[in-house]
């Protein structure tokens, strides 16, 4: 799979220079979703049987929990609820994702699995570069919820283990995530962490992450 690179549009909300900074880091769309979050979970009692996925932890600074309901006849997501612990962009990203997967009659589970942080960022009109990492957990939680739905439906063949090899078990970050981050321009451990948070919960994976960064840099950008 070719990782989707963010378009120029996806970067528009970034603060490029202090002179262009209009006093707020976020686009109007981000603000709208942050101040008026859509579809967040208010009453869990009606969702006891719904499929659920959760990633992150409060120790890392971001945690997301997602519930989905699926129409078994069409395989489309009919309802999504969420709860997010995190900064403004984490909350706005989850809110936007809930709109994206339920609008126009709902996304098929197949399409929902292909949703990537870049798609959400584009719809938000971009996020500041240092905030990209806040939005990478939502789609992971969604994929975990989709697997949970198949599990509950007894369709075990449809459960997809995250592509790639899990490097950071706490945050469920794979070598593919590291690859995408490097392709996105993160060329140091600090920059990869800014995008993915890898190793912030469990630092024991950091030596392996550093090896992968070196490997993908050489693969895509040539040896130093």
């Amino acid at each position: 799979m070719n990782p989707t690179k963010p378009t120029d549009d996806a970067r528009k909300g970034d603060v490029v220079s202090p002179t262009k900074d209009k006093g707020w880091f976020y686009t109007d769309t981000v603000k709208d979703h942050f101040f008026h979050p859509r579809n967040f979970m208010q009453d869990e009692s009606a969702y006891g049987e719904a499929a659920m996925g959760m990633v992150g932890s409060p120790a890392c600074g971001d945690a997301m929990k997602i519930w989905i309901k699926v129409d078994p006849a069409t395989g489309r997501i009919s309802d999504m609820k969420w709860k997010t612990f995190g900064c403004g962009s984490a909350i706005a990203s989850t809110s936007m994702m809930s709109v994206m997967v339920t609008e126009n009659g709902g996304m098929t589970l197949e399409d929902a699995r292909k949703l990537r942080p870049q798609n959400i960022m584009e719809r938000l009109g971009g996020l500041p570069a240092r905030k990209v990492h806040c939005s990478v957990l939502g789609d992971k939680a969604l994929r975990a919820a989709i697997n949970d739905w198949y599990r509950r439906a007894g369709q075990h063949d449809n459960i997809e283990i995250e592509q790639g090899r899990v490097i950071d078990a706490t945050l469920k970050i794979t070598d593919k995530d590291i690859e995408e981050a490097v392709l996105d321009g993160a060329d140091t451990l600090e920059k990869v962490q800014a995008k993915t948070k890898v190793g912030t919960g469990d630092p024991s994976c950091i030596p392996e992450v550093e090896n992968l960064i070196r490997f993908y840099k050489e693969k895509y950008f040539g040896a130093e």
Partner: peptide, 8 residues
């Protein structure tokens, strides 16, 4: 807190 999945 209503939006947060965390209840530490």
């Amino acid at each position: 807190r209503v939006m947060s999945p965390v209840n530490l």
